Computed example of a mutant assay.
Amino acid sequence: MDDTDPLLPPFAAKIAVVVRDDLETWQRLNVTAFLVSGITAALPELVGARYEDADGQHYLPLLGVPVLVFEGSGAVLASTRERAVGRGLPLAVYTRDMFATGHDAANRAVVAAVPGASLDLVGLALHGPKNAVDKVLKGTRLHP
């Protein structure tokens, strides 16, 4: 049994977010926040303990593992999605249609209406072993 703490370096796994390279800045930030929330909700064991300052003020806990943000074209996002699905990695998606919705149920509906290979992806997030994530990210580049 591996008794290493996944929240302490060296990290065996990581979270990667990939956003479309043609999005406005506000869209990139919005998509990144939503996608990381999906990973966090699905993998609560990746969340560390709450924070506390020297005055005793408490703050919410944060993810305890690295989150790297990448960018790529729509075609790169589609192939990244295919590789992640093929490897069975936990995956969150954000599609262009979701910008026009106003709530979570509508977001799920616009994704459900399109086959996975045809999704107009503007972002995705995944979590997994570093080596597997690195292979899935082929063609992306670190966000500037």
Score class of each variant (00 low, 15 high):
A106I: 08
D2Y: 06
L62C: 05
I39R: 04
R87G: 09
P66R: 13
K14F: 01
N131M: 10
G139P: 10
A84P: 07
V31I: 13
G48V: 03
P61S: 09
K14Y: 02
L119T: 04
M1H: 06
L121S: 05
N30H: 03
Y94T: 03
R28Q: 10
K130Y: 10
P90K: 08
H143I: 01
R141S: 13
V67W: 01
E71T: 06
V19Q: 05
D3C: 00
H143F: 08
D55M: 09
T95P: 01
G128W: 02
L63W: 00
T95I: 08
D3T: 10
S118N: 13
F70T: 02
D55Y: 08
A54V: 12
L43W: 02
P61K: 08
P61N: 07
A41F: 11
E71W: 06
L121V: 02
D134K: 11
A109H: 08
L137D: 07
L124F: 06
R83H: 09
V110S: 05
V65E: 04
T80Y: 09
G88P: 08
G64N: 07
R96G: 09
D104L: 14
V36H: 07
A13D: 07
H103C: 12
M1R: 02
A49Y: 06
V36K: 04
E82K: 15
L35M: 07
A117E: 15
L137R: 04
G123V: 10
D21G: 00
L60C: 07
G116E: 15
T101P: 07
G102R: 14
F11W: 11
R20A: 09
H58A: 14
N30C: 01
T101E: 11
